[in-house]
């Protein structure tokens, strides 16, 4: 006791405690290593399961985001169509979704999901909030086929707003539209607005069709021609409006029988 109190054992106890700590550290580190070895596989499995759950959740959320984006796009289109129908209250519209295109590359038709059950009839004009799309060519109970103004067989009587002249708008196999039968004395300019004239009774008057982009005038031709940029983007048609209160004039009864 006296020696200990006198500090004569301090160096010996230091050596002893240091050895003890070293041994305990060695045991502790080995125990932790063994514990990690035994528990790690279980953690990996649970982590993998958790990862799978999260990946599933992420993919579900991504699908929801895509669906919501589509719904927002459709809502914007519908809102624009509602604005258009309010701005043109003289017509009655029936909205329809474009569900297909003509299987033939030579024709420019689209198929919509409204038919005779919804009051759609052959010859009714079809528009979007941007302008004229075409007219109903054939109808079944729940679907209809629309001939676009870009179809090679399409022929729309139009007028040039600035030039105060009538012309004929014809389509093509490539989907381009051209103005024909423009009198030579009419002064055309790029940017002139093209509207339906209503002549012939096939379409109501004053529907926007497009703008003149390129004019071809040759002295030896009877008429001028012009390329037109349609206001409707026919490559991304999703929802259209059928004007259901317009009855096209049927001239077939006026034609003489052979």
């Amino acid at each position: 006791m006296a020696l200990a109190l006198g500090g004569y054992f301090s160096s010996g106890s230091n050596v002893f405690t240091a050895s003890l700590v070293t041994v305990q550290s060695w045991f502790s580190s080995r125990f932790v290593a063994v514990q990690e070895f035994l528990t790690a596989p279980r953690d990996m499995a649970s982590l993998r399961q958790r990862n799978t759950e999260l990946e599933t959740e992420v993919s579900e959320l991504q699908a929801q985001v895509i669906q919501l984006q589509q719904e927002v796009g459709e809502t914007q289109i519908l809102a624009a169509l509602v604005d258009f129908s309010r701005a043109n209250p003289e017509n009655t519209y029936k909205a329809a979704a474009v569900i297909g295109e003509d299987p033939s590359p030579f024709l420019q038709y689209v198929i919509i999901n409204r038919g005779s059950n919804d009051g759609i009839q052959r010859g009714m004009p079809v528009v979007t909030n941007q302008g004229l799309v075409g007219r109903v060519d054939a109808v079944i109970a729940d679907a209809a086929r629309i001939q676009l103004i870009t179809d090679p067989a399409s022929n729309v009587n139009v007028r040039l707003q600035n030039a105060e002249a009538d012309a004929s708008l014809i389509g093509s196999v490539t989907g381009d539209v051209t103005l024909d039968l423009i009198p030579q004395d009419v002064a055309l300019e790029p940017g002139d607005l093209v509207l339906t004239s209503g002549l012939g009774g096939g379409y109501p008057p004053d529907l926007i069709v497009g703008q003149v982009v390129n004019i071809r005038t040759r002295d030896f031709d009877l008429f001028q021609q012009a390329a037109v940029q349609p206001v409707v983007d026919f490559n991304h048609l999703q929802i259209v409006l059928v004007i259901v209160n317009f009855k096209p004039v049927d001239f077939s009864t006026l034609k003489p029988l052979p």
């Binding site: 297909g100 003509d102 299987p103």
Partner: peptide, 17 residues
Amino acid sequence: VLLQSAIVSRITLLSGI
């Protein structure tokens, strides 16, 4: 025919499908 009208006809190369 359904796939042709709904999908294939919308995938164009120039004007061909």
